[in-house]
Design a protein around this nucleic acid. Sequence first.
DNA 1: GGCGCATGATTGACACGTCAATCAAATGTG
DNA 2: CACATTTGATTGACGTGTCAATCATGCGCC
Lengths: 160, 160
Amino acid sequence: MTEDTPLRSRQSPTADELRTWRGFIETAQALNARLSARLHEESALSPGDYAVLLALSEADGRRLRSSELADAVGWERSRLSHHIRRMEGRDLIRRDDCAVDYRGAEVVLTDHGAQAFRSASVPHLRAVRELFVDALTPDQLEQVEHLTAALRTRLDRPAR
Amino acid sequence: MTEDTPLRSRQSPTADELRTWRGFIETAQALNARLSARLHEESALSPGDYAVLLALSEADGRRLRSSELADAVGWERSRLSHHIRRMEGRDLIRRDDCAVDYRGAEVVLTDHGAQAFRSASVPHLRAVRELFVDALTPDQLEQVEHLTAALRTRLDRPAR
DNA sequence: GGCGCATGATTGACACGTCAATCAAATGTG
DNA sequence: CACATTTGATTGACGTGTCAATCATGCGCC
């Protein structure tokens, strides 16, 4: 859209633009922090736990290959591996060897994990509504869609 | 008007609302991740390092009491304490005893730290422009202001 | 002056995240 | 078939973040 601003786009943001940026990023972080805190209070789950349990709950047979789970939650493998180890210690999930590929592992939701997810999800979704959805008008929610789409277009371009 | 509107706000978000929420929060996280990666590539500083160096750069005499620094960057004290220890090891800052209150400590920007901040800030601000400011129209930037203000109003209310 | 509490800051334990190295099983290629 | 490479996953090291406990100094109060 802006073919003619090769120089301008290399400069620093103005003070106003920086304020908008800081407001945006800090608000998003604050929202995250608040939701994480409520999740933890209400169900003793971290956001990571919740993401893993959600993916497994929706999976066929409540089980996924490690790599599929990593894709589902959008994490690196090693991050998932560490997290899975901790969750296994709390009996939220279990690791099975994979029958069709002996390199692979399957992550399986335990009954206790399924139960924990169920009791966490309702209050969590309610919190999302209270702190995000209900804070905005329908028009504003639509604006958010457009904004994130615009930002993502830029982000999806090669790393630099 | 209908009986179900008061109840509605206690229910879970709709699928559309959840999609908007996920888009918002994931975009913010992706933006953060990208900016952190660039900061690290270009200057070997973490976002935390940058925040601390920024606050000290703007401080009188390039020094602040620990508690003032914690307020400036919005961190808990113990978090700051851990971070400061690591930064001291890299000669970005130094800790002095405080003359007026022997409980207190002052955090001082070293020359090396000041230099590191200077060389980091220009590329960092350019990245903010590229990935955020330039991705949005002026109208959209203004919408962001209104949105974050609305979200913050809700967040600033008592914790639950 | 001495006692008790408040305050400034640090520490330790542990959860979380990234990166590079590792390892074993699978696969392709001569 | 043999051997190098790729693939699925784990590990170790280390930076980061939170919480509770700790510690020393400052300060109010008798």
